[in-house]
């Protein structure tokens, strides 16, 4: 669709879509969109559209996965074949399995697992439209869906990416910045407790850039947390 732009940041310091370097894309969260799921959430982050569904706690199948002491959290991240410009072959692939794993580990630590031994909590995240940062969008949606399902948790997980284009750190990469940028670093954290549960990095950042980028991503997560919280409260008033 689009080739590499000549410049990512114009003279006024604005990005391709007119955002400031530390500005998030517009975020919209809707709670309880799926009737048959125990908890669900629809989330739009810029051009990203994801839907998350939570089932459980429920009986675990296959049975050998069950844990007598605590519940098992399972997470499936899946991109719809029509979610990207070039049709994606449907089904799990190398990338999908990896994103599922890191997302599960980003969400898992907040779930109070000991309340439901021998059961499973199944999280399904479907990406309907992708525009860079789908794993962070998925984690944000999954965490709201878990709360909607009434699952006991220590807090909500919020997630956000920071990257580097034109030697400048920018928050919440969009597709062009992700594809042709110099670095991409998604993080997930419990915004209330300042505890990071996911940190990945792709590309090159210097030590100072990393520290500054982390600060930017943390402030982004805190903004997202406020939107998540508001969506949940508004759903019941």
């Amino acid at each position: 669709m689009s080739d590499m732009p000549e410049k990512f940041i114009n003279e006024e310091g604005l990005r391709l879509d007119g955002r400031q370097v530390n500005e998030l894309r517009p975020l919209k969260i809707e709670v309880g969109v799926l009737k048959r799921a125990d908890g669900s959430c629809y989330l739009e982050l810029g051009q990203n559209k994801v839907v998350a569904a939570v089932y459980g706690p429920r009986e675990i199948h296959p049975r050998h996965l069950q844990n007598a002491m605590e519940t098992v959290v399972r997470y499936r991240y899946n991109m719809a074949s029509f979610s990207v410009d070039e049709r994606k072959r449907p089904g799990p692939d190398r990338r999908g399995v990896e994103v599922s794993k890191v997302s599960r580990e980003a969400i898992g630590p907040v779930v109070l697992k000991e309340y439901y031994p021998r059961s499973s909590i199944d999280i399904f995240v479907e990406v309907l439209q992708a525009d860079a940062g789908t794993r962070t969008a998925g984690i944000n949606a999954a965490s709201v869906a878990l709360a909607d399902a009434g699952i006991p948790m220590k807090g909500l997980v919020s997630s956000c990416a920071v990257g580097k284009v034109d030697d400048t750190l920018v928050l919440d990469l969009m597709k062009e910045e992700d594809n042709y940028g110099q670095a991409d670093m998604p993080i997930a954290m419990v915004a209330k407790e300042d505890k990071i549960t996911l940190l990945q990095m792709d590309g090159h950042l210097t030590n100072d850039e990393f520290k500054k980028g982390l600060e930017m991503a943390i402030s982004g997560c805190k903004k997202i947390y406020e939107v998540q919280k508001k969506a949940l409260i508004d759903a019941y008033s």
Binding site: V110, A147, P152, M153, K154, G155, L156, V190, K192, E193, Q228, K229, L232, I233, Y236, S237
Partner: peptide
């Protein structure tokens, strides 16, 4: 509805 406050996980009480 004043006595009914909606809270989310992790809210300080």
């Amino acid at each position: 509805m004043i006595d009914k406050e909606v809270v989310v996980p992790g809210d300080f009480l």
